[in-house]
Design a protein around this nucleic acid. Structure first.
Lengths: 100, 100
DNA sequence: TTATATTTGCCAATATTTGTCAAGACAATA
DNA sequence: TATTGTCTTGACAAATATTGGCAAATATAA
């Protein structure tokens, strides 16, 4: 299954008639990396997202959220108790938020 | 903040009057590793959970769930859009489940 | 104090991730 | 069919992260 992030990137890129190689060159990585990212074979590095968003004229926060969702999914995807673990993690996240 | 997993392990271990070194020896790792795991400085390897559960006479699935929750939390803990990403990931998880 | 338990910082070994390159697949078209 | 351009894939090396163990430091108890 492809990643949310990758699918969105491809969508944005093709809508703007950008070639993989053009996007790659602006991001300063090899074309193959973007190809893999869009297909969900690889994760982009978090630090590359802001520049990517800029190139694609996209909302950084949207891309960061999709990227993060992919990271979460990667961790739980084959786990039997994914849902239970998500709930436990969720509680902790919101506990932390309250504290602030 | 300590991990859910680590806190539970310590709880189980102390209740059974096991020393770090005794638990460590049964798990065949250095004492310091268990110390770090219990304090949340380190994550235990997933493969070690079944044996650990056995030693502590605990429910494997409970420990696996706590462990997984910690992995999720580690990924999102400093992220502004943790909640949004969790929601996105959640959708994907349950989509997958339906397919089966 | 002394003895024992736990914690901490550091290192080496191992594993994972990242990026590049080169070759291959595929489609459009001359 | 041969050519061109785009995209995909796998192999590899370099960079980075993780793991476990040691030893010194610290805490706890007798």
């Amino acid at each position: 299954m492809a990643t949310q992030f990758g699918e969105r990137i491809r969508e944005l890129r093709t809508k703007q008639n950008l070639l993989l190689r053009q996007l790659a060159s602006q991001l300063d990585v090899d074309t193959s990396i973007i190809s893999k990212v869009e297909r969900g074979d690889r994760q982009l590095k978090k630090e590359q997202i802001p520049l990517l968003a800029q190139i694609l004229k996209a909302d950084v926060e949207e891309l960061q959220t999709l990227w993060l969702a992919d990271q979460i999914y990667a961790v739980v995807k084959d786990e039997k108790f994914a849902n239970e673990a998500m709930q436990v993690a969720d509680k902790k996240i919101n506990l932390k938020k309250k504290k602030k």
